[in-house]
């Protein structure tokens, strides 16, 4: 068995654009839940709006990419307001249920045939990122060695994505250390106490929801740029659960937690899939089992992730960088 191949694949996934996209979504989610105590299970909805807002502007309306990105992020703010105004006054369970339903229903709307002219329906939208790659100042050709060989454009996406991850982490850190952040964290601890001090807690929660949503929208924009297209199948409710898994692994209410968690998530996921492929390729297994494993590595790695989540909560609920005192947040 080629352990260096498995490790190489895993590390490539842990550093790749997908990990950066997850890191951005997890940073937003961390602001929502880790700091503001909002149980958002519709994070993928924000990613979808960011991606589709950008793609529709470019591919459907023939507009500029630099108009599309702010439009997509603006849609995220609108979604946060539409979602938050009716539900943020209620208990957090209601918020959790409404967010997961709203994100999935938006996906159904986007892929429905009446929306095909606007969103491409089940086919999605393509060729949207040309003006992004035009900005690429890296020389042409391939860089790196072995598994870690990237084309100029791949490197450009990764560079931009990881810079955005750093910027957003810094932004959230700055926000959390500001007076605004102290109020938000206080709402997480005891909303009634904050309200009794005369703060409009719903407005603070709405702001936190919108800012975290825009960061997740940025993740969707990077996803659209990276693939130079969008498709509704990339925004299934599972994605939200995966972002949660990444955030929990890294540790809630920490600055590096979401970033490390996202890298770890993709490292483990690709590592497991790579291991299964290599292992069944060895020929040690009986034909029936090898045939069963062929093409099943994706489902197996997600099932293992489910076991991992249960074990993590049972044995190590604070995650890698988390603190035990933050365990009883939110609900």
């Amino acid at each position: 068995m080629e352990f260096d191949v498995i490790l190489g694949n895993a590390a490539r996934a842990g550093l790749g654009p997908q990990a950066a996209i997850f890191a951005l979504a997890a940073i937003g989610l961390n602001l929502h839940f880790g700091y503001a105590g909002l149980l958002n299970f519709g994070q993928v909805g924000f990613m979808m709006l960011g991606a589709y807002g950008t793609a529709i502007t470019v591919a459907t309306w023939g507009g500029s990419l630099w108009l599309g990105i702010p439009l997509g992020l603006g849609l995220c703010v609108a979604f946060a307001l539409a979602l938050g105004v009716p539900t943020l006054r209620l208990r957090s369970d209601y918020f959790a249920i409404t967010t997961i339903a709203a994100a999935e229903i938006m996906r159904l709307l986007i892929r429905s045939s009446p929306a095909t002219e606007l969103t491409g329906g089940p086919f999605g939208l393509q060729t949207i990122a040309n003006s992004f790659y035009d900005l690429n100042f890296l020389p042409d050709g391939r860089f790196g060695w072995g598994t870690f060989t990237y084309s100029s454009n791949q490197l450009w996406v990764m560079l931009v994505a990881w810079i955005l991850v750093c910027l957003c982490s810094a932004l959230v850190l700055g926000l959390i250390r500001s007076p605004w952040g102290r109020v938000v964290r206080a709402i997480r601890e005891d909303e009634d106490a904050v309200r009794s001090l005369g703060k409009n807690t719903v407005a603070y929660k709405l702001q936190a929801l919108a800012i975290g949503g825009v960061i997740a929208g940025l993740a969707g924009v990077i996803d659209a740029l990276q693939q130079s297209g969008v498709g509704s199948e990339n925004f299934e409710p599972q994605v939200t659960f995966f972002v949660w898994a990444a955030l929990i692994m890294g540790g809630l209410a920490t600055t590096v937690g979401p970033v490390v968690g996202a890298m770890l998530f993709w490292f483990l996921r690709e590592g497991v899939e790579s291991f299964i492929r290599e292992f069944s390729g060895l020929g040690w297994l009986p034909d029936g089992l090898a045939g069963f494993l062929d093409g099943a590595e994706g489902a197996i790695s997600i099932a293992l992730m489910g076991i991992g989540l249960i074990a993590l909560m049972a044995l190590w609920p604070q995650g890698v960088f988390g603190r035990r005192r933050d365990l009883h947040l939110g609900t």
Binding site: L39, G306, M313
Partner: peptide, 13 residues
């Protein structure tokens, strides 16, 4: 919240 994550893990599994 931890319970919710346990059921999410269970559902994925």
């Amino acid at each position: 919240f931890q319970f919710m994550v346990v059921t999410i893990g269970l559902s994925l599994l």
